[in-house]
Design a protein around this nucleic acid. Sequence first.
DNA 1: ACTCTAATGTTATATCATTACGCTTGCTTC
DNA 2: GAAGCAAGCGTAATGATATAACATTAGAGT
Lengths: 133, 133
Amino acid sequence: MSEPKPLTRNQTLVLDTLSAEHAPLSAYDILDRLREEGLKAPLQVYRALETLTERGLAHRLESLNAFVACAGDDCHRSGVIGFAICEKCGSVAEFSDFVLRQRLEGWADRQGFHPHETTIEMRGMCAACSVAA
Amino acid sequence: MSEPKPLTRNQTLVLDTLSAEHAPLSAYDILDRLREEGLKAPLQVYRALETLTERGLAHRLESLNAFVACAGDDCHRSGVIGFAICEKCGSVAEFSDFVLRQRLEGWADRQGFHPHETTIEMRGMCAACSVAA
DNA sequence: ACTCTAATGTTATATCATTACGCTTGCTTC
DNA sequence: GAAGCAAGCGTAATGATATAACATTAGAGT
Ligand SMILES: [Zn+2]
Ligand SMILES: [Zn+2]
Ligand SMILES: [Zn+2]
Ligand SMILES: [Zn+2]
């Protein structure tokens, strides 16, 4: 194997921005926070995000068109990941469940379907926000 | 209880368009197909889609920003639905699995998370396209 | 030095979705 | 029937998200 290749400047800026936030950010949110660092165009952010998500350092939340830093000390795309997204406070919990994965793969096998990328997202209210309700 | 309230003209047009297609359509795709019926603005389509998805007659595919007609003889929002989306031919299979649902709800319960809406989408290659590869 | 790959910078454009406002329709209530 | 209400509609403008195209730069491997 080889060196884990360091992140570039733009990639680091974007990942740091995501990590500092406790909620998902859209690419444009990220861009706004990085204007003073010299970033000017959406594409600079999207390109960094592409690399980061490929490496499992960040995740895209499809139902929000937004992104979060990986919460799991780096997933490395470890199989199927699920997200529980609080619609009130924006917190995102990341989970990975073997049975869930097995179940999806079982269905796919029986159908002859070959999954390439799987999205599991629950939107609702987190424990903290529920008690406050 | 009461009558199942008929669909309006716009809602019918949109649902028929979705039903006639074998692949997901974006709101603008739908609009294009309905211009000769007199529709002119995206909002007319989005409003119809909102009603249709609320009633379980159509579904939104979050990872595609697109819509499909319900394939299950009307879901009526019957719990958690999963989708298997072929990235080659665009076919969409709809499935509903009790164990899957149980597993998600179990996790949510343990965390005190209250899911409101759940998205499960697998993108990959369908059986038909796989043999053709 | 040559080549290959990844990343970058910039401009312009494409695609997806909502806000705002006013009108019409059907229904309920006085 | 008039007044009030809710859902739907039409239209224009705008906002939000994402990519295409093209030229350039930096580093690794030979
Ligand atoms: Zn992760
Ligand atoms: Zn919360
Ligand atoms: Zn359905
Ligand atoms: Zn296919």
